[in-house]
Amino acid sequence: MTDMIYAPQRLPWRRRLPAQLALSAALCIKALPESRRMRARLALARRVRRLPPAEPGDVRELYQAVVACQPPWWRGQIDCKERALATVLATALTGRRCHLVLGARTLPAAFHAWVVASDGTQVGDEEAGGHDHPWTPVLTTP
């Protein structure tokens, strides 16, 4: 069963604005046909590879901003793939980069997406029991 994620406290506009724009883009990708979604996510995440690396604290703040600003027009659930992609895009909108990671685990069998800062700090991997049953990275964008 998936754990619910509650929105953190209200963050400053310099974090909320890129998070809202990036989350809107990630949700537009979710509206694509299922056969094209993952390719579009990876293509967007790879576009930011030439930007300088982001600080782990900035990545965590942007992730919290993405979690906090679910748009009122979106009635569905926002999955980990959309949150992770939105964090990568929000970090890119601030002129920095982080890495999108797709992973899995065997017991209990599940898939997950999270973000890694340039120094290896993982953000968003603690969802769905990430500490009890660690995730194994399968694909990391450059």
Rank of each mutant, 00 (worst) to 15 (best):
M1P: 12
M4A: 14
M4N: 14
Y6F: 12
Y6Q: 08
A7W: 14
P8Q: 04
R10H: 10
L11K: 01
P12D: 11
W13L: 15
W13N: 15
R14C: 13
L17V: 15
L17F: 05
A19M: 06
A19N: 05
A19V: 04
Q20P: 13
A22Y: 07
L23D: 01
L23Y: 06
A25W: 11
A25G: 03
A26H: 08
L27H: 05
L27S: 00
C28P: 01
K30Q: 15
A31P: 01
A31D: 07
L32V: 14
E34F: 12
S35Y: 08
R36W: 15
R36G: 09
R37T: 00
M38S: 10
M38D: 11
M38V: 04
M38C: 10
R39P: 07
R41L: 12
L42H: 10
A43S: 12
L44N: 10
A45P: 15
A45F: 14
A45C: 11
A45T: 09
R46F: 13
R46L: 11
V48G: 02
L51H: 05
L51T: 03
L51F: 09
P52A: 10
P52T: 11
E55V: 14
P56I: 09
G57A: 14
G57V: 07
R60S: 07
E61I: 03
L62R: 01
L62W: 06
Y63R: 00
A65W: 03
V66S: 00
V67T: 07
V67K: 00
V67C: 07
A68L: 02
C69E: 05
C69L: 11
P71F: 07
P72S: 13
P72V: 07
G76C: 11
Q77L: 13
I78M: 03
C80H: 08
K81N: 15
E82L: 08
E82I: 04
R83D: 10
R83W: 15
A84K: 07
A84W: 09
L85K: 08
T87Q: 00
T87G: 04
T87F: 03
T87S: 08
T87R: 00
V88H: 07
A90G: 03
T91Y: 06
A92V: 00
A92W: 01
L93Y: 07
T94W: 01
G95P: 03
G95D: 03
R96P: 00
R97C: 02
H99G: 00
G103I: 07
R105Q: 04
L107P: 01
A110G: 06
H112R: 00
H112P: 06
A113V: 04
W114N: 06
W114L: 05
W114D: 02
W114R: 00
V115W: 03
V116K: 08
V116W: 03
V116M: 12
V116D: 08
A117C: 13
D119Y: 15
D119Q: 09
Q122H: 04
V123T: 00
G124I: 00
G124D: 05
D125F: 08
G129E: 12
G130Y: 11
G130E: 06
G130K: 02
H131M: 11
H133N: 15
H133P: 13
P134F: 06
P134S: 10
W135G: 04
W135R: 07
T136Q: 14
T136G: 13
P137M: 03
P137G: 12
V138Y: 06
V138W: 09
V138R: 07
T141R: 06
P142M: 09
